[in-house]
Nucleic acid binder design. Structure first.
Lengths: 137, 137
DNA sequence: TTGCGTGCAAAGGTTTTGCATGGCA
DNA sequence: TGCCATGCAAAACCTTTGCACGCAA
């Protein structure tokens, strides 16, 4: 398994340099240009599957969309340990570090017998920035 | 707008009789048979769009799948008022009625400025039943 | 009769796969 | 040289759309 090819490097770099932005395959195809040449979508898909297995990126589908989005995981961050908030408006992903979450997770486990899977769970809503912008309208 | 045709009635009945189960379009095509005749997928899709607009069903995509799932909303239940838990193993959807959730939502709002959208948010994990089964293996 | 749902087929879009080629170790 | 990523094209899949027909009011 080789992970240091030019295409893989460029794609991973794009995603890891913008960890709070989500990319469609089309976005990646448009933004990653090597020597003036676009990367074929087949290669992009294969690369994304590879990185997802390595837990370097997350894949998810935004409700209402009909295609997948991919997002880089910040280096050294273990995304199975905290919650994620996703803004409906701007698409931003927020890695939430907050004490109360452990309480919440424990409550769900003890009172409802439900073991939350943090890697899959995404809390949708409206972030501060978008709320302010929306209020200004 | 007519909602009482045979096809619509049968599809809605299936979903509302199994509100903690999620159905793909294929599932519906396999299970709703009228006079020995399957309902064409085009009709199923159109019906599901219709019911989603009426807020009689929810649509969502399970991580790892590449197609949509649909789930009936229990009658008289306002799904924009409570959280939903979804079991990774059996697929069951649980409508969560619990006091702590309001606290949690308020905390997210006040401390993090994030207004959670309950209609989109799905908490994934393992339910009690599946945990017990898994432990027994 | 009129309107809207239905059925069938075709189209559209995303994602996957097969196979030959090419690059890195 | 050998292995694996790449490129291209085709296929597979899910979903939507167009159009003619049929059923219910």
């Amino acid at each position: 398994m080789r992970s240091n090819t030019k295409a893989r490097e460029a794609i991973l770099n794009l995603l890891q340099s913008n960890t709070n932005r989500q990319f469609t395959v089309e976005d990646i195809a448009n933004e990653v240009i090597l020597n003036g040449i676009r990367i074929p979508t087949a290669t992009i898909y294969r690369t994304l599957v590879f990185f997802e297995e390595q837990k370097l990126i997350n894949k998810f589908v935004v409700p209402g969309e009909n295609r997948a989005c991919y997002q880089g995981i910040p280096k050294g961050r273990d995304c199975s340990k905290h919650y994620h908030l996703k803004c409906n408006t701007c698409g931003k992903l927020i890695h939430l570090d907050c004490e109360i979450m452990a309480t919440f997770t424990t409550h769900m486990e003890n009172e409802h017998g439900f073991a939350i899977d943090l890697e899959r769970t995404l809390l949708y809503g409206i972030c501060v920035d978008c709320k302010i912008l929306g209020a200004g309208k």
